[in-house]
């Protein structure tokens, strides 16, 4: 499974678990408009740490915060290189 598909799967899963309605997922969809709230986002990041073995939000070099789905995927792609 690619990083992208892992992330998208977990986004859908977290949204379903938390009873959230997701907007259609695309790379330029702003995270704030995705339907995920901050709790969902926190759960997503923790799940991805378990699934991918990386948490780019706690590593020192990543100071920028992703604003879109595409930037989120890119952040993990970079962290996993």
């Amino acid at each position: 499974m690619t990083t992208r598909s892992t992330i998208l799967t977990h986004i859908r899963d977290v949204a379903a678990q938390q009873g959230k309605t997701l907007a259609p997922l695309s790379d330029d969809l702003p995270l704030l408009e995705s339907g995920l709230d901050s709790l969902c986002f926190a759960i997503l990041v923790a799940r991805l740490e378990d699934a991918l073995g990386a948490d780019p939000f706690t590593t020192a070099q990543s100071q920028r915060f992703p604003r879109t789905i595409g930037e989120l995927i890119a952040l993990y792609d970079e962290a996993l290189v």
């Binding site: 901050s38 709790l39 986002f41 926190a42 759960i43 990041v45 923790a46 948490d55 939000f57 706690t58």
Partner: peptide, 10 residues
């Protein structure tokens, strides 16, 4: 608590 960089804890 599980530490979270987003909400402090989960």
């Amino acid at each position: 608590a599980r530490p979270s960089p987003i909400t402090g804890a989960l």
